[in-house]
Simulated assay, not measured.
Amino acid sequence: MEQRMKQLFNRLAFLGYRSFDIKKIVQEAIGKESVSEINRSQSIKVIRHLEFYEQLGANFVEAYSK
């Protein structure tokens, strides 16, 4: 799970999300900005939120890169 979160952080950064945007996404998911010392259910929530925003970013890039 840690590896997946790292991949998603990198992907979001590539899509143009800033570090404060990513922290806000994490905070929205679990109520805190840091993913250190989180349990399994919190990790799953974070990953779901990150994947959702990754999809939004990818859709945006696809729509406006034509």
Rank of each mutant, 00 (worst) to 15 (best):
Met1Trp: 09
Met1Glu: 10
Met1Thr: 14
Met1Asp: 05
Glu2Met: 10
Glu2Thr: 07
Gln3His: 08
Arg4Thr: 15
Arg4Val: 10
Arg4Pro: 13
Met5Glu: 09
Met5Thr: 03
Met5Leu: 13
Met5Arg: 04
Met5Phe: 12
Met5His: 04
Met5Trp: 05
Leu8Lys: 01
Leu8His: 00
Phe9Asp: 03
Phe9Ala: 05
Asn10Phe: 03
Asn10Asp: 14
Asn10Trp: 07
Arg11Gly: 07
Arg11Cys: 11
Leu12Met: 03
Leu12Ala: 01
Leu12Glu: 09
Leu12Gly: 05
Ala13Arg: 14
Ala13Pro: 02
Ala13Cys: 02
Ala13Val: 13
Phe14Ser: 14
Phe14Arg: 14
Phe14Ile: 11
Leu15Asn: 11
Leu15Thr: 02
Gly16Gln: 01
Tyr17Pro: 05
Tyr17Glu: 00
Arg18Ala: 13
Arg18Trp: 15
Arg18Ser: 13
Ser19Ile: 15
Ser19Glu: 13
Ser19Arg: 14
Phe20Thr: 05
Asp21Met: 06
Asp21Ile: 08
Ile22Met: 06
Lys23Leu: 04
Lys23Met: 12
Lys24His: 10
Lys24Leu: 12
Lys24Ile: 06
Val26Leu: 05
Val26Gly: 02
Val26Phe: 07
Gln27Cys: 09
Gln27Val: 02
Gln27Gly: 03
Glu28Pro: 04
Glu28His: 07
Ala29Glu: 00
Ile30Cys: 00
Ile30Pro: 02
Ile30Met: 00
Gly31Arg: 01
Gly31Glu: 11
Gly31Asp: 02
Lys32Leu: 12
Glu33Pro: 12
Ser34Lys: 11
Val35Trp: 06
Val35Arg: 03
Val35Cys: 11
Val35Met: 10
Val35Ile: 12
Val35Lys: 10
Ser36Ala: 13
Ser36Arg: 15
Ser36Val: 13
Ser36Tyr: 11
Glu37Ile: 07
Ile38Tyr: 00
Ile38Asp: 01
Ile38Thr: 00
Asn39Thr: 13
Asn39Gly: 08
Arg40His: 15
Arg40Ile: 14
Arg40Gln: 15
Ser41Pro: 00
Ser41Cys: 05
Ser41Tyr: 12
Gln42Gly: 01
Gln42Ser: 03
Ser43Phe: 08
Ser43Pro: 10
Ile44Ser: 01
Ile44Gln: 05
Ile44Tyr: 15
Lys45Phe: 15
Val46Tyr: 06
Arg48Leu: 14
His49Trp: 15
His49Gln: 03
His49Asn: 03
Leu50Ala: 04
Phe52Cys: 13
Tyr53Asp: 03
Tyr53Thr: 09
Glu54Val: 09
Glu54Lys: 06
Glu54Ser: 06
Glu54Arg: 06
Glu54Thr: 10
Gln55Leu: 12
Gln55Val: 08
Leu56Trp: 02
Leu56Gly: 01
Leu56Pro: 02
Leu56Glu: 13
Leu56His: 02
Gly57Trp: 04
Gly57His: 07
Gly57Asn: 11
Gly57Glu: 03
Gly57Phe: 07
Ala58Val: 08
Ala58Pro: 07
Asn59Ile: 04
Asn59Gln: 11
Asn59Lys: 13
Val61Ala: 13
Glu62Tyr: 02
Glu62Gly: 10
Ala63His: 08
Ala63Met: 09
Ala63Thr: 06
Tyr64Ala: 05
Tyr64Thr: 09
Tyr64Glu: 14
Ser65Leu: 03
Ser65Tyr: 12
Ser65Asn: 02
Ser65Lys: 06
Ser65Ile: 09
Lys66Ile: 11
Lys66Thr: 02
